[in-house]
């Protein structure tokens, strides 16, 4: 569907992207995840055609698009700040693409009407963008891109400008819409929750390089490197005594007890340094007698009531719940 081959892009001395290879399947909800400056936005702009790679190719449905100008690519982008046309109504904003494609007027009207239903904005078609709330503007931006029935829809941090509650609502909306229209979505985000909850598969980028690709579960449970492990969630990393390997133990796999590890369990003595009550869960920060920092996350009900800062207890885990990183430390 979307295939990136050996894609590289430099800006002066800065390497924005180094030899990226990636394939996104048809109808897939795919995310590019990474901290700012990791090359994810560069990747998106290369697919959209706003930037040209120094090396490598961009293929879409098997067609080489590397040299094609943006307006001739069958992809559409939802901009981070929406970039709605301020002088046009919602309807005209959405109709912009189909009109540029010179579709028949009846077809344009049908498509725009349909897509406005999908994003639930049919009542506001006559409004101007500045008369809409942030969430509504976001949906116009989505409709304006979807209406062209692109081979792939590109989304550049689409939810970043929204407040947290609205972000959660829009996340669900995004998922619903993607399932409804069945178009390939390529989402760029630095929000791991967003990437984990929305994606069929995701790629973690770091300093212009691809770290790992996989399903959210694979990446969370079996990351290849410490970078991926820590970027996808809180992580306890143990250096393996024998080899030079690093073992990952997610904080929710740790059990805090006063009794020693049972048969088949591993355990360490640790002292509580900090307790953070988070409603449904409690985050407990500890330090072991070998002076290693640990973090445990448990449901509030499971944490012993007498747990205090300074308490000493056992941190136990099942070795099967831990994961040996591929990449040596």
């Amino acid at each position: 569907m979307v295939a990136l081959q050996n894609l590289s892009r430099r800006y002066g001395d800065h390497v924005a992207l180094e030899n990226l290879n990636l394939t996104v399947g048809a109808g897939e909800f795919f995310s590019l995840l990474g901290p700012s400056g990791c090359g994810k936005t560069t990747t998106l702009r290369l697919i959209a055609g706003f930037d040209r790679p120094d090396r490598g190719r961009v293929l879409l449905q098997g067609r080489d698009l590397t040299g094609a100008p943006p307006h001739q690519r069958p992809v559409n982008l939802v901009f981070q700040n929406y970039a709605l046309f301020p002088h046009l109504s919602v309807w005209d904003n959405v109709a912009f693409g189909p009109r540029s494609l010179r579709l028949p007027e009846a077809e344009i009207r049908r498509r725009v009407g349909e897509v406005l239903e999908v994003v639930r904005l049919a009542d506001l078609a006559r409004r101007r963008p500045h008369q809409l709330s942030g969430g509504q503007q976001q949906r116009v931006a989505l409709a304006r891109a979807l209406v062209n029935a692109p081979a792939a829809l590109l989304l550049d941090e689409p939810l970043a400008a929204l407040d947290p509650d609205l972000r959660r609502t829009m996340r669900a909306e995004l998922q619903r819409i993607q399932r409804q229209v069945g178009i390939t979505f390529v989402l760029v985000t630095h929000d791991r929750e967003e990437a984990l909850s929305l994606s069929d598969r995701l790629a973690v980028l770091h300093e212009g390089r691809l770290e790992q690709v996989g399903t959210p579960r694979q990446l969370y449970d079996s990351p290849r490197s410490a970078v991926v492990a820590t970027f996808l969630g809180a992580a306890n990393l143990f250096r393996e005594g024998a080899g030079s390997g690093v073992r990952l133990l997610r904080p929710e796999r740790l059990r805090l007890r006063s009794s020693a590890p049972a048969e088949g369990e591993q355990g360490m003595r640790a002292r509580v340094r900090e307790l953070v009550f988070q409603g449904a869960t409690v985050e407990v920060r500890l330090r072991t007698d070998r002076n290693q920092a640990l973090v445990a996350i448990d449901t509030a009900a499971d944490v012993p009531n007498n747990l205090r800062v300074g308490s000493e207890l056992w941190c136990c885990w099942n070795p099967a719940d831990s994961h040996l990183l591929e990449e040596p430390a």
Binding site: P70, H71, Q72, N76, F85, P86, F96, G97, S100
Partner: peptide, 27 residues
């Protein structure tokens, strides 16, 4: 005029003349 509006117009399949006529000219 936000440069991204021109990018958006290009993304929405408008060629150079159309970008000028529909975005730069009115704004």
């Amino acid at each position: 005029i936000d440069r991204r509006l021109l990018e958006a117009a290009a993304d929405l399949h408008a060629g150079g003349l159309r970008r000028f006529r529909l975005v730069v000219w009115p704004l």
